[in-house]
């Protein structure tokens, strides 16, 4: 096990840094925010797209593919960069991000971007739709898994807890929810705005298989995903402790970097921290 994970982790570190550079680059070029939101998900997406999800970039609509939903749509630059890296479209296409006529909006559109399963941007929709996908798989005796990445802010929404109740009751064991638990939401810290703790216990009582991990440790993420797939009775939630803005020192753990676009200097500084 350890032997197979080590080289993957090394490669993923390089891939994740590259995605982080692309994120900063896109935000800088388009002069837009949500950089911190995207950076906190990069390691999770890297493991998902490079070592977990059974997908085929040449056939984004392949019927038996694993489904992935980025429920926190505002973090879409991380998804775009990862999809590009995985071969869904050329990285160069991301230069059009937010330009008039682009395919790449500030929230991902399934109508426009190959590999995007669900158009998101309004929080608290992803798990509910994921349940439908998982249920279709179960009824159709398919083997695919459905993975939904949500933010901690989204866990304020009632719809999230309706979904939690439903998936637990329906025993959707092929549904995996990952919470990007970076402890910051839009207008402050989770602990000040809408405390989620005891968080793991909430999911447990809703009949989910619960794991808590470091959401920036590729090996841990991979292990948690693999463990989640062993479940035969319950949906799985992976509470990934993360750092908003991860990878760029001055962006880490701040509310501000939910909003600011990086200046020329800030981009250069970020790149110097993200070089291989």
């Amino acid at each position: 096990m350890a032997e197979t994970i080590a080289p993957i982790a090394n490669d993923l570190a390089v891939k994740s840094r590259s995605v982080r550079r692309t994120i900063v680059e896109m935000a800088h070029r388009a002069h837009c925010g949500h950089v911190g939101s995207a950076l906190s998900t990069v390691d999770i997406l890297s493991v998902l797209y490079h070592s977990f999800l059974r997908i085929d970039p040449t056939q984004p609509q392949w019927a038996d593919r694993d489904r992935f939903i980025l429920s926190k749509g505002h973090g879409c630059t991380a998804l775009y960069a990862t999809l590009a890296q995985r071969g869904f479209f050329p990285v160069a296409e991301l230069e059009t991000f937010l330009r008039d006529g682009t395919l790449f909006a500030g929230h991902p559109s399934a109508r426009h971007v190959p590999g995007v399963e669900l158009s998101t941007g309004s929080l608290g929709h992803g798990i509910n739709v994921g349940i439908g996908m998982a249920l279709a798989g179960k009824r159709g005796e398919k083997n695919y898994r459905t993975v939904v990445l949500v933010s901690d802010g989204e866990c304020d929404e009632g719809s999230t807890w309706e979904a939690a109740l439903t998936a637990g009751f329906w025993k959707l064991n092929k549904l995996i929810v990952i919470v990007d638990y970076n402890k910051i939401q839009s207008f402050g810290r989770v602990a000040d705005i809408m405390e989620l703790e005891p968080f793991a216990a909430k999911w447990t009582t809703f009949n989910w298989h619960v794991q808590e991990i470091n959401g920036h440790d590729h090996a841990e993420i991979a292990r948690a995903l693999s463990k989640a797939t062993e479940e035969t009775q319950r949906p799985s939630v992976i509470i990934a402790h993360t750092i908003k803005g991860k990878g760029v020192s001055f962006m880490e753990d701040t509310v501000d970097w939910h909003y600011w676009p990086p200046s020329d200097d800030q981009k250069a500084k970020a790149f110097s921290e993200l070089c291989d």
């Binding site: 500030g106 929230h107 559109s109 941007g121």
Partner: peptide, 9 residues
């Protein structure tokens, strides 16, 4: 008003 943020907005 939310322009390129897309249809959800």
């Amino acid at each position: 008003s939310y322009g390129h943020q897309g249809a959800t907005h």
